[in-house]
């Protein structure tokens, strides 16, 4: 067995472990209506949360999704924290990841300010609204909707086929007015790639919706930002992924303040989650070239389906 295959096997084994834990110990987590006093020492939960976030960080990078999208549904599945605190931590996880990865991507011209800022402006306003709506709703309703959203994301990941550099003939009037176009250096072809965009009004509308969903569920929204940039607006994939991080860092910050003021951000929970995901992401980035990312992506899709289903059933009180 070669080294890459071994790594895939280890990855799959780790994911299977997570899934088994989800199934075998359904009563460990009780994010909605826990009634039992917590017997386990707090620091044990913190170590578990850090270790779990670390594994999620590895998987999120290998699967090409943000840590936030995995964090909220899976952690709410079997950690004893209320969903409010998990969503607060989830937003900070997404925000921190985007902040730490942002600078090199900006320098390379991959994260584009002129593309990201208009989308972030509408997205941040709606993410505040989403956060307010999410915190006002009963937890079981949020959990149910979260389940639906996660299964939709899994379906989107299964179906979507990203385009490296979409062939775009003519930019639309709004994108020209907003001066949105760019050039970046493509290392694989050793050439400059120039790009422009279209369908900007529809893109702005969708970023508003994505912002609302991201704020409501405390998730990063890379899963939605990237397809909208790439498949709808014609942004090259690398620019789409990098600029999605910029949008996330702004939308996440706006919604995070709502959670902070509602008392839904607890450092005891948020910091180990951030630390674990960020450390795991760094390891994941190193493994990226050595592991079969398609297999890992499949494992993550399965994890999302299970977590989504579990969240949905919990929302129904089952």
């Amino acid at each position: 067995m070669n080294s890459a295959a071994r790594k895939i096997l280890v990855s799959c084994a780790a994911a299977s472990g997570v899934l088994a834990f989800l199934f075998i110990s359904p009563n460990i987590g009780y994010a909605i209506q826990p009634h039992v006093a917590e017997p386990t020492a707090w620091w044990v939960w913190m170590i578990l949360l850090f270790a779990f976030s670390f594994i999620l960080g590895i998987f999120s990078v290998l699967a090409g999704v943000g840590g936030g999208v995995l964090f909220v549904p899976i952690v709410s599945g079997f950690f004893p924290f209320h969903l409010d605190f998990i969503r607060g931590a989830g937003l900070l996880v997404a925000l921190s990841g985007a902040l730490s990865a942002g600078a090199p991507l900006m320098r390379k011209g991959l994260a584009d300010l002129k593309l990201g800022l208009p989308m972030a402006l509408v997205g941040s306003i709606s993410s505040i609204a989403g956060a307010l709506a999410g915190l006002a709703m009963p937890a079981n309703v949020v959990q149910l909707l979260l389940g639906v959203a996660i299964m939709f994301i899994a379906a989107l990941m299964m179906k979507s086929r990203a385009y490296g550099t979409p062939d775009l003939k003519k930019p639309d009037a709004l994108s020209q007015m907003l001066q949105i176009s760019g050039i970046y250096y493509e290392e694989s072809t050793k050439s400059d790639v120039s790009w422009q965009i279209h369908r900007t009004p529809l893109g702005l509308f969708l970023f508003m919706i994505i912002g609302f969903i991201g704020g409501m569920f405390g998730m990063g929204a890379g899963w939605a930002n990237v397809p909208v940039f790439n498949m709808l607006m014609g942004v090259p994939l690398k620019v789409a992924v990098a600029t999605s991080g910029l949008v996330l860092s702004i939308n996440g910050a706006a919604a995070a303040w709502v959670y902070i003021f509602k008392g839904a951000v607890v450092p005891l929970i948020a910091v180990p989650a951030i630390g674990g995901i960020m450390l795991g992401s760094k390891i994941g980035a190193k493994l990226l070239t050595k592991v079969n990312t398609r297999s890992v992506r499949l494992v993550v899709i399965i994890m999302l389906v299970v977590a989504g289903l579990r969240s949905f059933l919990k929302g129904l009180g089952i």
Partner: peptide
């Protein structure tokens, strides 16, 4: 910390009410 850990299953607003945790 023990007070936070003993009540982190509660909704944020309920924990705030019970423990008077600071916010904002």
């Amino acid at each position: 910390i023990d007070a936070i850990a003993g009540n982190w299953h509660l909704k944020a607003s309920e924990m705030q009410q019970k423990l008077h945790t600071p916010a904002g």
